[in-house]
Amino acid sequence: MEEKSLFILKNIKVKIKNRIILDNISINLKKNNITGVIGPSGSGKSTLLKVLSFLLTPYSGEITYKGIALKDYNPQKYRKTVSYVQQRPYLFPKTVRDNLLYGPKLWGIKYNEEELYALLDLVNLDPVFLDREVINLSEGEKQRINIARSLANKPEVLLLDEPTSALDLLSTEIIENLILKLKKQDLKIIVVTHNLEQTKRISDEVLVLNAGRILDHISIDEFLHSRSDEEIRLYFKKQSSNGGNQND
């Protein structure tokens, strides 16, 4: 069973400034599917993505990726393979081309014009965007470039932190279609989301977090059938009493 596991997390604990954000989490995440990470604000969803992307070192516990402990990977090479996409698109203040080629330049990956156009096409953007300054892009376009910038590194896993939270319906649909398209290309995708309908549309399974602990790791259908409407609303609720934070 472990052979098929992409990530294995054992007793992961994350403590920031003496506050426990993730509390003894143990999970197996398999390849080639889409995992929706859900839970109320402050439940540790974004922190889990950062731990998986090696952007946060747990206080204790062990993580393996493809059977090898994370600490045995070169962190930079690992982050190229397991790519974390931030909730807000922090693009470098240059052109779209510069942003798309940032990762490939680090890794010596060559791109010709056609390949760059294909990358833009993947996120439904016209080739004319390539030499546009990012300052002139809409939020939806920025988010799509944000994802395309990660894809330019040719990752095996994409970790998306609420990719559509600030987007209009059209941009949301484009990104959801992109996620489904990427799944067909054998990419493992883990998405943090607050959107129930989106979870139903794109996720094969859900990981339900609450107060830093895993409540469930089941298929979306099982989840919807096993919970009351009120509970489901709670897990997708955006605001909590602590207002949520970037260590969410």
């Binding site: 982050r79 996409v85 931030q86 922090y90 470098f92 940032y102 990762g103 944000n146 910038r149």
Partner: peptide, 16 residues
């Protein structure tokens, strides 16, 4: 900070 984290997530070293 967001931009620095973005670069790190793409595989940049801290210096880069």
């Amino acid at each position: 900070k967001g931009m620095v984290e973005a670069a790190i997530a793409l595989g940049a070293t801290p210096r880069k």
